[in-house]
Computed example of a mutant assay.
Amino acid sequence: MKMKKCKRRSFGCVLRTFALAAAVVTLNYFKAGAQDGNAGIQQANTQVRSYFESGTSLMYAIGAILGLIGAVKVYSKWNAGDQDTSKVAAAWFGSCIFLVVVATIIKSFFGL
């Protein structure tokens, strides 16, 4: 592509010069930002890993609370003589087991 010679102070010349300057500044900015990318990724990795211990403990606590709520609901259905007590018990027990298994897998997967 052949570039036309710019006449001094023409709009096209000023526009091309501005576009070239903007491109150079942008490339320099991205080059400087890329150098800090690895440090930023490492810092994010460290912060996220520090939350896993608290997150798994929170999941165990939620599982315990759901277990207690489920036990009360199943007990009340059982005392009322409902026929679907086993379905409700299986659902609540399954949800508690799921939370405990997910928390355990997260803990073992990330080596905590």
Results as ranks from 00 to 15, higher is better:
Met1Gln: 12
Met1Gly: 14
Lys2Val: 04
Lys4Leu: 03
Lys4Phe: 00
Lys5Trp: 07
Lys5Gly: 02
Cys6Arg: 07
Cys6Phe: 09
Cys6His: 10
Cys6Pro: 02
Lys7Trp: 08
Arg9Ala: 12
Ser10Asp: 02
Phe11Met: 06
Gly12Met: 01
Gly12Arg: 14
Gly12Gln: 04
Gly12Ser: 11
Gly12Leu: 13
Gly12Ala: 12
Gly12Thr: 07
Val14Leu: 12
Val14Glu: 08
Leu15Phe: 01
Leu15Ile: 14
Arg16Cys: 11
Ala19Arg: 10
Ala19Phe: 09
Leu20Gln: 14
Ala21Gly: 12
Ala21Gln: 15
Ala22Glu: 06
Ala22Val: 06
Ala23Asn: 13
Ala23Cys: 10
Val24Tyr: 11
Val24Trp: 09
Thr26His: 03
Leu27Tyr: 04
Asn28Gln: 12
Asn28Glu: 01
Tyr29Pro: 11
Tyr29Ala: 15
Phe30Glu: 07
Lys31Phe: 08
Gly33Asn: 13
Gln35Ala: 08
Asn38Ala: 04
Ala39Cys: 06
Gly40Gln: 06
Ile41Phe: 00
Gln42Pro: 00
Gln42Thr: 14
Gln42Val: 11
Gln42Met: 03
Gln43His: 10
Ser50Ile: 05
Ser50Cys: 09
Ser50Ala: 12
Tyr51Leu: 05
Tyr51Asp: 02
Tyr51Cys: 08
Ser57Gln: 15
Leu58Val: 14
Leu58Ile: 14
Met59Gln: 03
Tyr60Lys: 14
Ala61Cys: 08
Ile62Arg: 08
Ile62Asn: 09
Gly63Gln: 03
Ala64Glu: 01
Ile65Phe: 04
Leu66Trp: 05
Leu68Gln: 10
Ile69Gln: 05
Ile69Pro: 03
Ala71Met: 06
Val72Ser: 13
Val72Gln: 13
Val74Ser: 04
Tyr75Glu: 07
Ser76Lys: 07
Lys77Cys: 04
Trp78Ala: 15
Trp78Pro: 01
Asn79Ile: 11
Asn79Arg: 15
Asp82Arg: 11
Asp82Trp: 10
Gln83Ile: 13
Gln83Asp: 13
Asp84Arg: 01
Thr85Pro: 10
Ser86Leu: 12
Ser86Met: 09
Lys87Val: 02
Lys87Thr: 06
Ala91Phe: 00
Trp92His: 14
Trp92Lys: 01
Phe93Gln: 14
Gly94Leu: 09
Cys96His: 11
Leu99Cys: 01
Val101Pro: 11
Val102Leu: 11
Ala103Ser: 02
Thr104Lys: 09
Ile106Arg: 01
Ser108Trp: 15
Ser108Val: 15
Phe110Leu: 15
Gly111Tyr: 11
Leu112Trp: 05
Leu112Phe: 06
Leu112Val: 05
